[in-house]
Amino acid sequence: MVEKEGFAALVLRLRAEGISDLDLLTAVEQTPRSLFVPTAAAADAYSARTTPIECGAFMEGADLAVRILHHLQVKPGQRVLEIGTGSGFTGAVLGRLAERVLSVDRYKTLVTGAQRRMDKLSLRNIVIRQADGINGMPGEGTFDRILVTGAFTSMPRFYAEQLVSGGAMIAPLMREDGTCMMMRLTKTGSRFDREDLFPVPYLPLVPHIAAAL
């Protein structure tokens, strides 16, 4: 019941923002957020608040998570790379929209937890891996969409070769004033067209996989 009410309230807030993409909202509805948040936060699963999860990581509020996916514009048949698995919620929604999702995180604890949730939801087209994604995943071919949930301190131009022509990447970029802006980079030939979207509360990306967690 909490799940249904939480989702209905989220849809109303998103519609007020102009987000009414039926495929996306259906994918969100089929991915119960209470499965991804810590038990103590289940009542707030659909709120706009940021939720702390294991390994010092956090889960975006429901509104921000869906807003980012809305701007990513994933289509059926596409391959998606996600840098920063976290709880696995965004990856699970992506898995319902795309052909194949590769999601990586530096923390083994988060990778294991997210994999368990994918298995529970019978999502078989999502590969979750512990890896240092700061330079993307060279050697994995090209992707139609790339989503990064840790902030870069400079434009990540090296990702260009991991995107198909016409592909798009959404990533946060730290600005000189210390704020963080979500941007969409669309690949045209060998260059990126940049569009600033909205401020986000992300922290800078950390290199290397985590040793202990």
Rank of each mutant, 00 (worst) to 15 (best):
G167V: 09
G86H: 02
V93A: 07
V148C: 09
L173F: 06
K108V: 08
T85K: 01
R117A: 02
G95E: 13
I146F: 04
G91E: 08
I134T: 15
S103M: 11
A151N: 08
V111P: 02
V127D: 14
R145P: 01
D119R: 15
T149N: 04
P172F: 03
T112K: 08
T85L: 07
L94K: 10
G91T: 12
R124V: 13
T153F: 00
G95N: 13
V101C: 13
V148P: 00
G150A: 15
E140S: 15
R145H: 01
I170K: 03
E99W: 10
E140G: 12
A114Y: 00
L163D: 09
M169Q: 06
S154W: 00
E140K: 12
G86A: 02
G133E: 05
A160L: 13
G133M: 09
G136F: 03
R116N: 07
G166A: 09
P172E: 06
M174I: 08
E161A: 12
R157D: 15
T153I: 09
G166E: 08
L121D: 01
M174H: 04
P138L: 09
L147N: 10
T90F: 00
G86Y: 02
G133W: 02
E176V: 09
R96F: 10
L94H: 08
E176I: 07
A171K: 00
I128S: 05
R116Y: 01
V127F: 05
R145Y: 00
F158W: 08
R129E: 15
G113L: 13
L147T: 09
Q115K: 14
F143Y: 06
V127N: 11
M174G: 07
G139P: 05
S122I: 03
A114T: 02
T90Y: 00
S87D: 04
A168M: 09
T90W: 00
F158N: 08
N125T: 12
G88L: 05
R145L: 02
I146V: 12
V164W: 00
V104D: 12
I170D: 01
T85R: 03
A171P: 02
F152I: 06
S154M: 05
L94P: 03
L94D: 01
K108Y: 08
G91L: 06
D119Y: 02
A160D: 12
G133S: 08
N135H: 14
M118R: 04
V164S: 11
I134R: 15
E176G: 15
L102K: 07
N125V: 10
D144I: 11
L110Y: 09
R175M: 11
